[in-house]
Computed example of a mutant assay.
Amino acid sequence: MSVIVITGGSRGIGASTAEHCARNGMGVILTYKSNAESARAVVERIELAGGKAVALELDVADVSGFGRFRESVRRTLQATWGVTTLSGLVNNAGHGLFNPLESVTEAQFDGLLNVHLKGPFFLTQTLLPLLEEGASIVNVTSATTRVATAGVAPYAAFKGGLEVLTRYMAKEFAERRIRANSVSPGAIRTELGGGLNDEFEALLAAQTALGRVGEPQDVARVITTLLSEDGGWINAQSIEVAGGYFI
């Protein structure tokens, strides 16, 4: 039985990935920071469709809680699926900030750093003993690492760091045949950064070759492939899922 952990799985890309993975026969442990109700709703949708999922609380910005989280994952694997290892980890949790460089505060900077780079680094390190040989790690980055967008400098910088970290994960975990890839979404209809209004969505759609903004499931399908045998020969790659954004 393949079981994966998806951080930030209560909404947006994370929730869509959880549901898509479950439809493809994977067990899902999804995390949430504070919105337990949304997380339970995702679990219920998965179970109604015949899958199995568990929601666990996790603050990705708080490294001190990672050891307790690992033990919760260990117990959940045994109690729910009767297994002892994970076959995948999706580092997805995060939040956005639209603020010019000149006005970004140290607290905002540190908050983004902790969630988008420090958190994935140490969570992967913490869960590494549970990852089985041949497991898959997917780090969710951003097309803002390729296309400079005013107001998102810290966010983009840390996503760029995560993209580099992905290649090092692939290099260092190779002895255990653990693959690591990053998925780089473009403009996606989620709540990140407050969501999209009609005017902003029209602008983004005009800048995208396929003429629309993406939906969470557009990204979820790619992540699911990377977690599955179909993506078994893809490693150390950054895959932009953006419909041809700014080409």
Score class of each variant (00 low, 15 high):
V42M: 00
A236N: 09
L117E: 00
F246H: 14
M26P: 00
R212D: 02
A157I: 08
I13K: 14
R23G: 15
L89V: 13
V147C: 12
F173E: 11
G214N: 08
K159Q: 05
A49S: 15
I223D: 03
V42K: 02
E19Q: 15
T105K: 02
P100D: 13
I188K: 11
E215N: 06
V104D: 09
N24C: 11
A170V: 00
S238W: 00
G195R: 10
K33P: 00
T144K: 01
A107Y: 01
A187M: 05
I13S: 13
I188Q: 11
R68C: 08
T190V: 07
T141D: 09
S2N: 15
E47P: 05
L204D: 01
G14S: 12
I178R: 03
F69R: 13
T31M: 07
V183T: 06
G214R: 09
L48E: 15
A205C: 06
R45Q: 09
A143E: 15
Q217F: 02
V140I: 15
D198L: 12
T149P: 00
E102F: 07
G27F: 04
G111A: 12
A150Q: 10
N92K: 06
H116Y: 08
G111Q: 10
T190P: 01
G25C: 06
H20S: 11
E71D: 14
Q125V: 10
S87R: 14
V152R: 07
A53F: 01
V147H: 15
T126P: 11
S228C: 06
E19L: 10
V3G: 10
G96K: 05
F66S: 05
V138D: 08
P120H: 05
S2M: 11
F66G: 02
R146H: 12
A36P: 00
L89Y: 07
I137G: 01
R176N: 03
A206M: 06
